[in-house]
Structures are given as C-alpha cells and as structure tokens.
Write a protein that binds this DNA or RNA. Sequence first.
RNA 1: GCCUGGGUAGCUCAACCGGCAGAGCAACCCCCUUGUAAGGGGUAGGUUGUGGGUUCAAGUCCCACCCUAGGCUCCA
Length: 588
Amino acid sequence: MKKTKTEKLAILRHSCEHLLMQAMLRLWPGKILMALGPATKNGFYADFETLDNLKITPTDFPKIEAEMHKIVQEKLLFKKYIINTKRARKLFANNPYKQELIDDIVHKKEPISIYYTGRDFVDLCRGPHVQNTGQLKHFKLLSVAGAYWRGSEKNKMLTRIYGTCFPTKKELDTYLKQRAEAQKRDHRRLGEELDLFIIDETVGPGLILWQPKGAILRKIIMDFALDTYLKNGYQLVFTPHIARIKLWQQSGHWDFYRESMFAPFKAENQLYSLKPMNCPLHVKIYNHKIKSYRDLPLRYTEMGTVYRFEKSGVLHGLTRVRGFTQDDAHIICRRDQLEEEISHALELTFYILKTFGFNKFKVKLSTRDPKEKGKFIGNDEDWQLAEKLLLQSLKKNKIPSLEEDRGGAAFYGPKIDVTINDAIGREWQLSTIQLDFNLPSRFQMRYIDQKGQARQPFMIHRALLGSLERFIGILIEHYAGAFPPWLAPVQVVILPITEKEIGPAKKIADQLSQANLRYELSSSNQTLSYRLRQAELQKIPYLLIVGQREVKENKMVLRRRGNKEQRTLTIKDFLAIVNKEIAKKKLL
RNA sequence: GCCUGGGUAGCUCAACCGGCAGAGCAACCCCCUUGUAAGGGGUAGGUUGUGGGUUCAAGUCCCACCCUAGGCUCCA
C-alpha cells in the first residue's frame, strides 16, 4: 500500500526520535532511562527519566545534535526483530517504563517487535522506520519540558525533548521560519510594543490592565458585539461581580467547581464569592416575575466579567486569565422555539466571526455518551431531543465541516463549539452554544402555558467571542497587530514636516476629530524619517504628511501602512476613502 | 499544582571561577527645521523579584516564597 505524505513524515520523525535517544544514550551512558516518544503533528518528542541528577537543558542541544549528525554519517540500518515476552523482559530488564509497555502489548496479544540501529541501540517499537539513519539529515531540537509518564498527574514527571525533522533542508527552514513568524505575532510581545495591555505582578497574575489603546480596541469590539445582539432581539442586563455562596450552592457550581472559584469572603456574617459565571444571575432576573409563554423567548445578554481561579501554570497572556469578560447571553425559550433559537445563534456566530476577519471554521457537536450514565444529568428524552435539534440546526445552516465528540457534552447538556483558523493557520476555539437542563430545574424556572399550567423552559447559554480578553489576544495574533481601520486604536497619524506646518496639521486634526476618527499628531522635533518609522512600528493604517507644497494647495500626502505608494489629496477625498474602508469593516 | 529555564534601569539585554552593576532603545534638556523606516550632543535613571542565610566581599553560592517562559495536567 502506498503511504501518504503525512504517514511518511510520521515515519521519518519517529525514526528521528530513535536517533535522538541513541545520541542521548551515547552522550550520557547509564544516566538516561528511555520512556517513549512518538511523532506529533509538527515533529516528535522523546520522554525519558534522567538519573544521578543529570539535567538536560537547551544549552545541551548543540552537543546532542552534533552526536545525532555523527550517527547520521554512520548510516545505520533500522533492523526489526520479533521477539518473545521472555526475551523482551530481559532486554529491557532495567527499564520499568518498557516493562509497563510490554505488559500492555502482552495484554493486547500483539507481537513484540524491537528495532536496532547499530549494535548499541535498541528500542521497543512497532515501527515502521526509514531504512537507515542516513536519511535523517534535516532535524532540529526545539525545546525541553517536563511531562508526566503516560500523561497522568499521578505519575512521575519525566523530561521531554521536542524536535522536528523534514525530508529536505528547505522544508525544515520553512518550518523554522513559520515558528519565528508565530513568535513575532505573539500577543504578549505586541501588547507591549503597541501599548495595549499590561499584567502587573502586584495586581496579580492573570489580571489584565488595559492601557488606553487596548481599552479603545476592547470598547470597539464590545460595542459592535452588543449592538449586534440588541439588533437581534437580545435584551441588555447587568449583574454584580460578587454574590452570596448560597447562590452558587443552588446553581451547583459550589459542589462541582469550587476549586476553580476564588475563596469566599465574609461580610456581615454572610459568605460571598466572586462570580465564575453569569448564568445564575440571569436566571434570578428571569425568575423575579412570573412569565407567560407569550414572553418567550427571552434573550438576556451581558458583557459579564467573571473570575476563575485558574492554576498558576496554565495562565498565558490574554488567552488564559483569571478575570475576564464574556459576551455572554442566556436564551430562555419553549421547546417549540429551541430549533429556531439555536439556528439564530449559529447565524449570529458566523456573522460576528466573519466581520472580525475569520473565514475558516470548524464546528464540533459535543453529545452525551449514553454509556457513561452518571456523568450527565437530565432524562433520555430531553437529551435525545436536544441533540436532534442541535444537529438539525447545524444541517440547516449548511455547516462546512462538522465533527462529533461523543461524550464531550457538558454535564448539563449538549453543545456546539466553533473553532476558527487564524492568518497563519492555527486553530482556536471561540464560540460555544450550549443547552442546559440543569439550571432550569435547580432554580425551578417556570412559565405559564396556554392551558394555565406551569412548565419548565429550556435554556441556551451562548458566548460568541468567548472571552473578550482571549478574543483580543487571538485577534492581535491574527492581524499581527496591524488591525483593519475600523479596529485600529489609532487610525490616522498626521505628520507635519516642519514646525511651520503644525498649524495646518491641527486644522486637519480638527476635521478628523469631527469625523470621529482616532488620530495622533506627530509633531515632535524629530526628523520625518524617524516619525514615519515610529508610525509604521505602531502599525497605524493611514499616514498623512503635510509639507509646504501641500499647504499651498490645501492638500496632503496619504500613505498607507506597509506601503510606499502615496497620493496627494484633499481632506474631503481622504475622509471619503477612510469612511468607505471603515464601513467595509473586515477588509484591508 | 508538577518539570525545566528565567527575573538586572520604563523596554530589550550584558556583567568570566564570588571582587567598584553596564549598553542600546525610550524619557528629559540642548543643537539641527527636517520631504518618506532610526540626525547629533548631553542629563537623569538601580535596595539586581521578595525575605532569610553563607562569606572579608553576593547580581553571582544556599533555603523559602512571589512572578514569568516552554511544556505536562486542567480548562465548567
């Protein structure tokens, strides 16, 4: 059977992992205990335990790589042997990890195969491998990290080396360039360079301080989302950041998610906690007055700030934080309204995401695994109905690529997750639409139906941007900080060439201000070159240059970010261009 | 939370085996009046993450804690 390109790459990389282990064992004989190492999407990794306090750091990489290249020169054959259990046990007698793997193979009644490269290296391995080590010329070790044996927190922490390998030098170089490009786009770095946000140690980890430029960006995004929701039949609500523990006990969060909540605090003998979710507060608003079937659907939306006690090791810039604001909404509806509400939420999702410049989506439907009873609440009938409705809405919206994750549902109901691809192809999960059977029952939500009987409504949770913090982090990386004009914190910079033009420049500024544009006047006593460079580094979309020639004609020179072409025009023409481009939103 | 790095001026980073803490950018002042991605000169800026310890002497060695990077686990 012919192998696909991905399969071939995986074989190459897995072989490279053997090469890495062989080099390690040659460099530190008796001090490395191999665990395992597979190929991954972009490379491979090798897990091992180090003995006698040996520590491997990236400073060792050149040495290890040199040793690997030596083995490549030797062109050792990858030789496969099938052996019996007894021999396998003996061969790896000193290695508890290999013994455990042998247990598994024996249990599965599979043949035990080993691969030799040269006389000094053998590993338990299913293969396949490339023919000889001479084929592994283009590799690079990337990082070192800790990883639990078999991925379980209860097990020992091993050392892991990540690396990658390609058939040609060109492909390796391209990959390394892409990695560097991702680093250049890192929102933490750009956040500093563009003065968007900071995280202050004294304020606390995972807590974002928005600087003026980041704050205006956040406001534009928030306003756009809220306006869209209000236009689409949602109602705005506001709820506090803290609530009594009683509320979280009733909602179930106290029992299920206490460890992710900030510890409660006392006031007047009552315990309060920061809210980890907005839902129970929206439920309280719903429950305040008795509702008729005619009132439904009700769609409460809020830019709700929540606080979750994320473990310190998982915090990351804007994308994983402890305090964040969700573009949250809860739709409370009758059973006969569910399908339309879900469809509507989906349509809105795609509209919003497309406006922000994301055009490639993946949709995942997470359902219940009926075998895992106890993991999910609610009755079979509700689950079947909910899953059916979600599926129907997805079909109706002609979703391009649909995955199903059986058993991936929340304990309270099935959900739809939307993942986007950013400009350099990375995937991020953003939107979520979830059905909830839990809260309506726990809070005894009711409405009165046509026959005068109290009935329990259905509830849909949905957040389309997810968290504003995370969304902005992703947006920064998607655009590499060069936001389209409608989002750019500063849209226009005015550059008078000398002090003589400051007067005319100010007049232009007034007109930009009246046109509601965000601008800066760059009038420092620096050379034009210097100021142009600053404007480019700040990734400002429009640069307006004003010198004597322009003043005479009552015009100015327009230049665009990252583009040396320019034209001379009047303020009127400029405003017409800008307004048109801003109205297009996602473009540029 | 766990593993391995790291924390030095506002930012990015240097300082050998323990021996006077240093540079670029930014800031401020002065000169230049600028025509398309860094003009020139000067000034100021530090309890080296925090607390303890070893030493004649600690940015450097030891202990604890905080923060941070890459991962692992987690992510309702």
